[in-house]
Amino acid sequence: MIRFSVNGQQQELDLETDMPLLWALRDGIGLTGTKYGCGQALCGACTVLVDGQPTRSCQVKLLDVAGRQITTIEGASGKVAEVVQQAWARLDVPQCGYCQSGQVLAAISLLTENRRPTDADIDAALSGNLCRCATYPRIRAAVHEAARALA
């Protein structure tokens, strides 16, 4: 039995301890906002925040999250999350949208630490998050817009 918190709620899961957090979230808890794209830490679609840090949930085993605080896209909240998601919608960033849970969480994490990121900061923070639709220019623009809203 592994205990950890997801979006502020305590979870007790009777699942294999080597199960990646990604599949525990999706199939065990039913939180499907976190996406599977590669299973190898190569795409960022499965990004969640573990104790606030952006983490590839496909690479974290359940055993390693015991006692931790997980935030998924469904639980993204607070001022930064709000302005980021509003900026995303206002600029119509998503095309297919499949990568965007990961992009949004990565952007929230960036803006939490750096309120005035440059393009280079954004590129560095988000280069692990693939977007096959190449919404990258709008991602940059939306991060800047969110930064302005936070200023």
């Binding site: 499907t32 906002g33 976190t34 998924t72 896209i73 469904e74 993204a76 998601q85 995303w88 919608a89 206002r90 119509d92 960033v93 998503p94 297919c96 949208g97 965007q100 849970s101 949004v104």
Partner: peptide
């Protein structure tokens, strides 16, 4: 505005 942009930015698009 695209009606699905917010859903796709908040993990609600299935």
């Amino acid at each position: 505005r695209k009606y699905d942009s917010l859903a796709k930015s908040t993990g609600r698009q299935n």
